[in-house]
Simulated assay, not measured.
Amino acid sequence: MIQSASLALREAFSPAFRSILFKSVGLALLLLVLLGVLVQTLAVKLIDLESTTWDFVADLLSGAGVLIALFFLVGPVVSLVAGFFQDQIAAKVEAEHYPGDPPGKELPTGRSILLAMRFALLVLVVNIGALLLLLVPGVNLIAWWAANAYLLGREYFEFAAMRFLGEAQARNLRRERQGRVFFAGLFVAAFMAIPVLNLATPLVASAFMVHIFKGMNGSRRTA
């Protein structure tokens, strides 16, 4: 698993993936900026203390709150963005490292986007829960890491598996190997906690889970 994680990290930032990296990071940044502007605009409109000084303080505090909120929104945003690029990432990994295996099949566009939206909503709910636990030292970080490890491991693994299996079969395989998938998810969640680099989560996680799935099937990497 460590070797697969290391390989996925190298691949995500390699020249072969540069185009997808720029597009996925750019889209994630655009969505985060739009969300930040929206939240800040709503906060300014809702907060009116009828005092220039206190309004200024409130603006500063709300700005800090928006930054904290955006940290927790990175997960849902990159999860949504992943739906647009996962097939491209998986296809490149499969072609480069498993050329002897039959290539995976792309999910229908509509189904892929629907799954990405569902995934993003689940991650959003989990991160809101973690945000509410912010005042409990240590607990919120542990809860955030464990919950995201489960969700990220489940979704990215099932996507990699669904390129070769039906949805029900992919889900059953994930349940059979849930321990391994969860530990793989811990790596993805840890990566997503790193500011700035976490914008590349779709590339790293998608490539990583292709290797995990292939390893379960007994496929051998050529490099």
Rank of each mutant, 00 (worst) to 15 (best):
D87L: 04
K92Y: 06
A91V: 06
G63T: 15
F85H: 04
F56A: 15
V66S: 06
P108C: 02
D55A: 01
L60H: 01
F71D: 06
P108A: 08
L60C: 04
Q86E: 14
V77E: 13
G75Q: 12
D87T: 09
P103N: 07
L67C: 10
G63I: 05
R111H: 09
Q88Y: 01
F71L: 13
P108L: 05
T109M: 07
A82F: 01
I68G: 01
H97Q: 10
L67P: 01
S79K: 09
R111A: 13
G75E: 08
A69V: 12
A90C: 02
G104H: 04
D59M: 07
P108H: 04
D87N: 14
L70R: 01
S112L: 12
D59V: 07
R111Q: 15
G100C: 00
W54P: 00
A95Y: 08
L60F: 04
V74R: 11
L73I: 09
Q88H: 11
L107A: 14
T53V: 15
G65E: 02
I89S: 00
L73C: 14
A64P: 08
F85K: 07
F84I: 12
A95C: 07
V93G: 03
G75H: 13
G65H: 04
S62I: 09
F84G: 02
F71H: 13
K92F: 03
L61P: 00
V77Q: 09
F72R: 14
A69L: 15
Q86A: 06
R111Y: 07
L70H: 03
L107R: 14
V74F: 00
V78G: 08
V77P: 11
I89M: 01
A95F: 03
L67D: 05
P99L: 06
G65V: 06
A95H: 12
L107G: 09
V93D: 04
A69M: 14
L61N: 00
G100D: 03
T53P: 01
V74E: 02
Y98S: 12
V66L: 10
D87G: 11
G65Y: 00
G110L: 12
T53S: 06
E96W: 11
I68H: 08
P102K: 09
F72N: 09
I68P: 05
E94I: 08
R111D: 13
L61I: 14
K92S: 11
